[in-house]
């Protein structure tokens, strides 16, 4: 399999007036094309920082981030970022919200608008095009946020705890929903989460991080029955992985 993203001995130190804080120290891992990878770690270990580095919002103090064989800047054209809350702009209609990345990238044309509309149709949102975000439920809004991320056809998706703002019922549904869309669109994905079950049920590979400064503690490739996260939660081995990761996080 083709490595889409590789981190080689990446470190990040940041400074305040009184402190020098090592957030990440020689972190190395890779993500294959088409893989769904979760990054899990104790809270405050710098999971989000890892995503910011990959997204090119932060620059590593040391080490290399290689995207698609390219050592230089991460190409933002190929990268979709999804945040904890949907962050839909309340003054824009659903349609306009989805076109936002295209406007920023100056790629609004007939083809891209058609593609956006086809995504809206496919994922049952075409009836809500002219509605404003506050008229949609939390789960629907998160689906819109995902489509906004997919609209410019990125090669790598970065998801920063995208379900944590939802209540637990909706959460399982949206988790399934998002997973299915991502698999259908065949996107390479990195998910940051603190929820062990979520990581196991969704991922091909789980990277467990240590406390700060973050390093790789262990890597799991869960083998589970079931096609969707909900089904995978019922799998026999699920508990085994859960226990292992839980121990890794609390030792």
């Amino acid at each position: 399999m083709n490595k889409l993203l590789e981190l080689k001995n990446v470190s990040l130190t940041y400074y305040t007036l009184t402190d020098e804080i090592k957030a990440i120290e020689s972190l190395s891992f890779y993500v294959n094309e088409g893989e769904f990878v979760s990054i899990i770690g104790p809270s405050g270990c710098g999971k989000t920082t890892v995503l910011s580095l990959i997204a090119g919002i932060l620059t590593p103090t040391n080490g290399k981030i290689i995207f698609d064989g390219n050592q230089h800047n991460v190409n933002k054209e190929q990268l979709g970022y999804m945040l904890q809350k949907d962050q839909l702009f309340p003054w824009r209609t659903i349609e306009k919200n989805i076109l936002l990345p295209l406007e920023i990238k100056k790629k609004v044309n007939k083809n891209s608008i058609d593609y956006a509309n086809s995504l809206l149709d496919k994922y049952g949102l075409s009836g809500f095009k002219k509605k404003y975000p506050d008229q949609l439920s939390g789960g629907m809004r998160q689906r819109v946020a995902l489509i906004r991320t997919l609209v410019f056809n990125p090669r790598l998706l970065l998801l920063d705890e995208p379900f944590s703002a939802l209540d637990s019922q909706t959460r399982l549904q949206v988790c399934d929903d998002v997973y299915n869309i991502i698999k259908e669109q065949n996107k390479t994905t990195i998910l940051v989460t603190h929820d062990i079950s979520e990581a196991i049920s969704m991922s091909d590979k789980i990277i467990v991080l240590t406390e700060r400064p973050a390093q790789v503690k262990s890597i799991y490739k869960p083998v589970l029955d079931g096609a969707t996260p909900l089904k995978r939660r019922e799998s026999k081995n699920f508990g085994v992985y859960f226990e292992k990761i839980w121990k890794d996080l609390h030792k």
Binding site: A55, I57, K76, E77, L79, G80, Y81, L83, Q84, K85, Q87, F89, L100, P101, E103, I104, K105, L158
Partner: peptide, 19 residues
């Protein structure tokens, strides 16, 4: 976070202001 979102899309400061 909305500013962060636009930055991940590659927006510059002028675009963040406008959009």
């Amino acid at each position: 976070d909305k500013i962060l979102l636009l930055e991940t899309m590659g927006a510059n400061k002028l675009q963040i202001m406008q959009k």
